[in-house]
Amino acid sequence: MASIARCLRAARPSTLSRLAQVPRTTYNWQPATLRAFSASPIRDIRKYTKDHEWIDLNADKTAGVIGISQYAAEELGDVVYVELPEEGKVVSAGDAIGAVESVKSAADINAPIACKVTSVNLALEEKPGTINQVPEDDSHGGGWIVKVQVGEQGVKDFDALMTLEEYNAFTGEEEH
């Protein structure tokens, strides 16, 4: 982190203006070639179902990740078992792709859109409680359920799902 901070500190406007005052004959420095440094994360597009599943689609809407919402994880209580689908399974929107059991109850996990399962989160078999800790995390250690391949029908299904704002209104929660 310290090296990043030093790099950013060196690019402060006050430093750049001082460098611009140095004669160009000493340094082959061209102020016109400077560009501002910025990085904006590329965020997948996330939507929610009324059954409390979420799906992230990549920018070209060909692949995605499915899981259960934070709201669902809190309502379920401590998750003790997760049933995962088989890789290669082709499902329609609303089809069961797995199940989650907690100390309070059990619930099916439904496919939010038509898709093909390409990968499952095997870590949930050993540590099902990950869903309670990070249910909406689609990273390596997160509580995601499956990764999917999406076709034309899946994209149509996706467009009909709820945004975060709509989902929060549906569940009665404030945005976090």
Rank of each mutant, 00 (worst) to 15 (best):
Q153R: 12
E75P: 01
K127L: 07
Q153E: 15
Q30M: 08
L122I: 13
L84M: 07
S92Y: 08
G154T: 03
V134K: 11
K50S: 07
K50G: 08
A111K: 07
I131R: 11
N58S: 05
E83L: 09
T130F: 06
A72T: 01
L76N: 11
G77M: 09
E75V: 09
K47H: 02
E152M: 02
E74Y: 05
D44A: 14
V90W: 01
G143M: 04
D138M: 10
S105C: 07
E74N: 11
E86K: 15
L76W: 04
Y48V: 00
I97R: 08
E87N: 13
L122H: 06
R43W: 03
G98E: 02
V65P: 12
W54K: 02
G67W: 05
A96R: 14
I42A: 13
D51I: 01
P135E: 00
E126D: 14
V155D: 01
E136T: 04
I145E: 01
V155E: 07
E136K: 02
K116A: 15
G143V: 01
E152Y: 02
A72K: 08
G142P: 03
K50M: 09
G67H: 09
T118F: 04
A39V: 15
A73Y: 01
A63C: 13
D44H: 08
D60W: 03
D108S: 13
E136V: 02
I42T: 06
I45G: 02
P41C: 13
V134D: 05
D60V: 03
Y48N: 08
V146W: 06
G154R: 14
E86S: 14
D51Y: 12
G94T: 02
G151I: 01
S119I: 04
V150P: 11
L34V: 15
Q149K: 15
L124Y: 11
S105M: 14
S139Y: 06
I66F: 14
V79K: 05
T130E: 07
G94V: 02
E86Y: 09
S102R: 08
A107H: 06
T118C: 00
T33P: 00
S119H: 15
E86R: 14
V82R: 10
I131H: 10
S139G: 15
I42C: 09
V117A: 05
G141P: 00
V150H: 14
V146I: 11
V65H: 15
P41I: 14
A106G: 10
T118R: 09
G129S: 13
K50L: 04
V150S: 14
P128T: 02
P31C: 00
D56M: 05
A96E: 13
Y48C: 02
